[in-house]
Design a binder for these strands. Sequence first.
DNA 1: TAAACTGTATTAGTTATATAATACAGTTAA
DNA 2: TTAACTGTATTATATAACTAATACAGTTTA
Lengths: 128, 128
Amino acid sequence: MVSFDGFFLTDKSPIYLQIIRFVKQGIAAGVIGNQEEVPSRRALSALLGVNPNTVQKAFRMLEEEGILVSRLGAKSYTSVDKDTMHRIRRELTLEETGRWVEAMRQLGVGEQEALKLAGELWKKERDG
Amino acid sequence: MVSFDGFFLTDKSPIYLQIIRFVKQGIAAGVIGNQEEVPSRRALSALLGVNPNTVQKAFRMLEEEGILVSRLGAKSYTSVDKDTMHRIRRELTLEETGRWVEAMRQLGVGEQEALKLAGELWKKERDG
DNA sequence: TAAACTGTATTAGTTATATAATACAGTTAA
DNA sequence: TTAACTGTATTATATAACTAATACAGTTTA
């Protein structure tokens, strides 16, 4: 069963996008596997404190990407083979890193300074 | 005169936030200095292809942060001393890097792999 | 002075997101 | 079989972001 334990509504971005992102991150990290049961629309909406329609929108888009399989009346399951997992992982990693590098460049922060700061933050999260 | 040459409406985030971010990045990078003239609301809205009210919203918020000074009927100017510049630079750098590190961790990407990829992307942008 | 520029304000309308309430249809398990 | 769960759909409402049109007031400059 896919768990939404670590999910929090932090962003100001649309909730349905945050749900999609959470699932994709779970897949990329290997936390969410293949043929895993997913919470029902109603159960998840209650858990997250959002509207069922919002969950449905996210799940429908995941289904359109082939990541989720739904059947009327039945529970929904993930559908992610290894290729899909690696594709998603590469996709998100490149996207995030590209955004960060671009941001640093626009801020006039050099490579060395940026990588140094990243290393420090990494250490801080690993330890404290 | 503050230039909006490198500005593009890429994000899906609110336009007024993108404008604010662009100005702050310019200040952090040292491209936008103190007492620099800013395009009028009408001129900038025409240049960016957005509504004058959207520009006004961004400029008002910049003014509330003390970064911009407006006078009825007159042109508007930036107001950024060195401390402010360094504060903004630190603020944005930490924010962006923290977001990236957190994303990498959630994707299950280790520090070495992440820093390596970042270095590659940096090289690619520097060269190609 | 007068025209052309500034900033500022208001009112109305559109779109995307999210909520609320409800209904229908198919599956599962007691 | 039937009760409780599934997915799916619809209609109505609310809010933030954005657009559009217009107006007023102050400054700058020819």
